[in-house]
Design a protein around this nucleic acid. Structure first.
Lengths: 115, 115
DNA sequence: CGCCTTCTTCGACGGCTCTCGTACGATGGG
DNA sequence: CCCATCGTACGAGAGCCGTCGAAGAAGGCG
């Protein structure tokens, strides 16, 4: 066993394969948008089980897969849990300012609509 | 006949009714994104017939309706043609920087993928 | 008036998406 | 070694979405 567990690896798109349409589509679902907001607000990577979502576990798996396959998050296994991190730097290089403006817009809308 | 033809009016969401998820979803379709890019690049309002799209007229109507109902564009009749304009100012006030970063991202991706 | 252009409406089809429940696999603690 | 926990896989259902063609309405022009 190496220092880091690499026994279960997950397929991620390369930075160059990330498509704007896919990112926008991934962010256009309320559940996924709330996940991204939580990830952005946290300094640490977050396990899937951290999130309190109004859907079942299998649906949660589906949403995380959409986020991973669109290039929005990077997922790594750590024991039985799966850690999630925003791909901030890569997205920033591909689409400068996009993620920040979406995050700001989501926060503004949440404030506007009263949480 | 008044100075401006108002005989046929179209339903638009108020600025306060525009939802971020709806805007992101509207922009996540390639056809609609290209429409928005053309609108942003033009100083004038553009008729639906201006756009050269890889879909039929009825599909075009559908896409413009999605853009209008999500609050991205404003449509007004002028005779038989329908003029389209980006709701830049309202979107900018609701979601500062969002539209610009999406437009830049789309341009960057087009350049990256070789038009 | 008659016709052309422009856009709409309607129904239809195929496909994707979101959702769930159940059953399963993988990991680590007692 | 057993089992609890975390996430996955699979099948299924309901609904939405993008697409089309055909038929129709609204307005302008000769």
């Amino acid at each position: 066993m190496t220092e880091r567990d690499t026994s279960r690896i997950l397929a991620h798109p390369e930075a160059g394969e990330i498509r704007l349409e896919g990112v926008l589509h991934a962010l256009s679902d309320p559940v996924r948008l709330s996940i991204v907001l939580d990830l952005a607000a946290s300094a640490e990577d977050l396990a899937c089980s951290y999130f309190v979502l109004p859907v079942t576990k299998s649906t949660t798996t589906h949403h995380f897969r959409v986020l991973r396959e669109s290039g929005v998050v990077r997922q790594t296994y750590r024991g039985t849990t799966k850690l999630n991190a925003l791909r901030r730097d890569e997205l920033e290089e591909l689409f400068p300012g996009l993620l920040d403006s979406v995050l700001k817009a989501a926060a503004a809308e949440e404030a506007r609509l009263g949480s």
